[in-house]
Simulated scan of single mutants.
Amino acid sequence: MDEGAQQTRPARRPGRMVGRVLGFPVYLHPSMLLLALLVTVVYGGYAETELGLAGAAAYAAGFGFVVCLLGSVLLHELGHALTARRYGIGVRGITLELLGGWTELDRDAPTPRVDALVSLAGPAVSFVLGGLATAAALALPDRTVAGQIVFQIAAGNVIVAIFNVLPGLPLDGGRALRAGLWALIKDRNRATVAAAWCGRGIALLTAMSVVTLYRLNVLTLFGLVFILLVVYTLWQGAGQSIRLARMTRRYPLVDLGTLARPLFAVPSGTPLAEAQRRADAADRARDALAVADSSGRVVALVDAAGSAAVPAERRPWVSVDAVSQDLGRLPVLSLGLSGEQVVRAVQAHPGAQYVVTSGEDVVGVLHIADLAELLEPRRAARRPSGR
């Protein structure tokens, strides 16, 4: 299954970079190695029993089939990537994983039309590959290794193309549906939520269908497990789309001027317990605890998680310097950034806290937990609280 052209992904890379194709970085997820091994073994057994190949030749055919599958997935994703580039949208990379692949874009499509074109470019490539492979299969002799591989590649590409144009996120057809709803109601976030719920509906219908086929002995146990894994991925992807749409809707609420915590500075060498006592006494316990040098200049920030990890009985003996980070080594956010710019910067430079500046002046500290609470209040309400 292809997850289509995705905009928001974790900043850490989920796989190893294996090279560049047409200038796009290509990453291989570890799960793809599992799939490659599984398909090689299964197809090798098929080649032995059905095609008459023996031993190493059968599994070499299985490996060749895996390479063709990977090539098909890569070409599908290149359809997304090249179309995005055509419309001025940057591509961070293409990742190939267990159930297909995804293309990471550096921003959303600017218009519904571009969104639809980028989304449908991948299935269009798969349809073309399926057509070319079908023509090749008809030209090759039947019951040969080459003929069988080409026929199955043709069938695979056509099935992938048809499945991916189903109208529900995270499938490509769901992104096209989102684009159409966006054009109609003029609200991309609401359109995303609607298309994601359609995706969950498709996942449920698919699950019920495959269970029925299994009970009728039309589908093998392996096929049942594999398709249910696809269904689970669909459900999770739709849920992530809903979550991101709700977050994006709250971007205008992000104001660093009010969200950043003011600094409460203590001299270098102050015991952690004493620093916390002073903050409590000044009714500034929620402020960002900072470390100042002998001239009063702030030089470091106390790491909230690090200080919380110090047992209470040890805090009188642990200096604030021991649980602090140098100011110059922390990521910086400018006070004038918009909500979307703040989120993009946080995705690019993950961390627990960020220095907020106005010109050359440090005006406060943004805790990532505060940003998460603003963007996802439902999740924050379910989290256990603690100092």
Rank of each mutant, 00 (worst) to 15 (best):
A5N: 07
R9P: 01
A11T: 00
P14C: 05
G15A: 07
M17K: 14
V18K: 01
R20H: 15
R20E: 14
Y27W: 12
H29Y: 05
M32W: 10
M32D: 00
T40M: 11
V41N: 07
V42R: 12
A47P: 02
L51N: 02
A54F: 00
A56R: 06
A58H: 05
Y59Q: 04
A60T: 15
A60D: 03
G62F: 13
C68D: 05
L70G: 11
G71I: 13
S72G: 08
G79Y: 13
G79H: 06
A81K: 12
L82I: 10
G93H: 05
L98Q: 01
W102G: 14
W102D: 15
D106E: 11
R107W: 13
D108Q: 12
D115E: 15
A121L: 04
P123L: 01
P123R: 12
F127Q: 10
L132V: 14
L138A: 01
L140C: 05
P141W: 11
P141F: 03
R143W: 10
T144F: 00
V145L: 02
V150Q: 04
F151S: 04
A155I: 13
N157E: 07
V160W: 14
V160F: 13
F163S: 12
L166F: 10
L169F: 04
R178P: 01
I185M: 06
N189Q: 15
T192I: 07
A194S: 07
A196Q: 10
G201M: 08
L205N: 01
A207F: 11
V211K: 08
T212V: 15
V225P: 00
V230L: 06
T233L: 14
L234R: 10
W235M: 14
G239W: 01
Q240R: 14
I242F: 04
R243G: 09
T248P: 03
R249F: 06
P252D: 09
A265M: 12
P267R: 15
S268R: 12
S268W: 00
L272Y: 09
E274P: 00
Q276R: 14
A279R: 14
A281R: 03
A281Y: 04
A282G: 04
D283C: 07
R284A: 09
A290K: 13
D293L: 02
D293S: 02
A312D: 13
R315C: 14
A322T: 06
A322H: 13
V323N: 06
V332N: 09
L333T: 00
L335A: 00
L337T: 00
A348T: 06
A352V: 05
Y354Q: 11
V356Q: 03
V362N: 08
V363T: 15
R378V: 09
A380K: 03
A381S: 12
P384H: 07
